[in-house]
Simulated assay, not measured.
Amino acid sequence: MGQGGEPRRAQANDGELGAAVTRAQDGDEAAFAVAYRIVQPGLLGYLRGIVGDDAEDVASDAWLEIARDLGRFKGDGAGFRGWTATIARHRALDHLRRLRVRPRSAVLDQDVVLDLAGPHSTHDEALESLSTGHALELVRGLPRDQAEAVLLRVVVGLDGPAAARVLGKRPGAVRTAAHRGLKRLARQLGAAGTGEGVTDGGPRTLGEST
Rank of each mutant, 00 (worst) to 15 (best):
M1Y: 04
M1D: 06
G5A: 08
E6V: 15
E6K: 13
R8K: 12
R8T: 13
A12E: 15
D14S: 14
G15Y: 03
E16Q: 14
L17C: 04
L17Y: 00
A20D: 08
R23C: 00
A24M: 01
D26L: 14
G27I: 03
A30D: 14
A35W: 03
R37T: 10
V39S: 13
L43K: 01
G45I: 02
G52E: 12
D53N: 09
D53V: 13
D53F: 02
D54C: 01
D54P: 01
A55V: 07
A55W: 05
V58A: 04
S60L: 12
S60V: 09
S60G: 11
W63N: 06
W63Y: 15
I66W: 03
G71C: 01
K74T: 15
G75C: 02
D76R: 05
G77C: 09
F80A: 08
G82N: 01
G82T: 09
W83Q: 05
W83P: 00
A85F: 07
I87E: 00
A88M: 10
H90V: 10
H90A: 13
L93A: 09
D94N: 11
H95S: 04
R98G: 12
A106G: 11
D109Y: 10
D109R: 14
Q110L: 10
D111H: 13
D111K: 13
V112F: 00
V112T: 12
V113R: 11
L116A: 15
A117P: 11
H123M: 08
D124L: 15
A126Y: 04
L130G: 03
T132H: 11
G133I: 07
E137H: 12
L138T: 02
L138F: 12
L138V: 06
V139P: 00
R140T: 11
L142A: 01
D145P: 11
A147P: 01
A149M: 05
V150Q: 01
L151W: 05
L152N: 06
R153N: 08
V156N: 04
V156K: 02
G157Q: 07
L158S: 04
D159M: 00
R165N: 02
G168M: 06
P171G: 06
G172Q: 10
A173Y: 02
A178T: 06
H179S: 15
L182Y: 01
K183A: 14
L185V: 15
R187Q: 12
Q188L: 15
A191H: 11
A191C: 04
T194Q: 13
G195M: 02
T199E: 12
G201T: 13
P203K: 07
T205N: 08
S209H: 08
T210R: 14
T210G: 13
